[in-house]
């Protein structure tokens, strides 16, 4: 498979190609999904990068293993990966005795854009504050909020990932968002939000 054509190939077709021995298909699948998987795992695990990398690697490993038996048309590869990451993170979070607070160093590394230094610093502060606030949410609420508002999944997709009903998803995201607003309200001035906004 020519690599310049790979971007047009659907995920499911890439899985078939991979299962038939095409190594370029694995590279394309990894470049498409690994950043998303890594980002989601990092946000779920409170910015623990090493642990998020382990989860991301494990999730991709499960994808490689299931590739030959992948049932076409049943689930999107991205949705399936989100579900695997959700389950892996839930297991790890359950195993943790106490959750670490998110500091600047623990927040997921973000790629630098071409913004001014000051704007970037303000935005990074806000993003770190958001991560810290996300950490205060119960696990299920955090999963639902991240999937909905950061990963951009639809409610039916989140319902599939979390294996719950759509109404439960709506309830979790609404409660999560309210809790986030409340958690960040006390830091408005610190984060550069104007009075009354």
């Amino acid at each position: 498979m020519a690599f310049d054509q790979a971007s047009d190939v659907p995920d499911e077709a890439l899985l078939v190609l991979y299962a038939n021995g095409d190594s370029a298909a694995a590279r394309e699948l990894a470049s498409r999904h690994l950043p998303r998987v890594m980002g989601f795992a990092a946000r779920m695990l409170g910015g623990d990068r090493a642990e998020a990398e382990d989860v991301a690697q494990e999730a991709m490993l499960r994808l490689w293993r299931i590739a030959p038996e992948w049932r076409q048309g049943e689930a999107k590869v991205s949705t399936w990966l989100y579900r695997v990451v959700t389950n892996l993170c839930t297991d790890r979070l359950r195993g943790q005795k106490r959750r670490r607070a998110v500091g600047l160093d623990d927040a997921p590394d973000v790629e630098d854009g071409a913004r001014s230094v000051e704007a970037s610093l303000v935005e990074n502060d806000r993003i770190n504050a958001l991560h810290a606030a996300l950490e205060t949410l119960p696990d299920r609420q955090r999963q639902a909020v991240v999937l909905r508002h950061i990963e951009g999944l639809t409610n039916p997709e989140i319902a599939e990932v979390m294996e719950i009903g759509i109404e439960a998803v709506e309830s979790l995201t609404a409660r999560g968002k309210r809790s986030l607003t409340a958690a960040m309200a006390g830091r408005r001035a610190e984060l550069g939000y104007e009075e009354g906004s």
Binding site: A26, A30, P35, R36, G39, A42, L61, W64, V110
Partner: peptide, 23 residues
């Protein structure tokens, strides 16, 4: 808009797994 960066090491490990598991 700011995707989490994937380290080269992680990408290498994932591709190594892919190669090992490839039928």
């Amino acid at each position: 808009q700011q995707p989490v960066a994937v380290s080269d090491d992680l990408m290498a490990r994932v591709l190594q797994d892919a190669q090992a598991e490839q039928p």
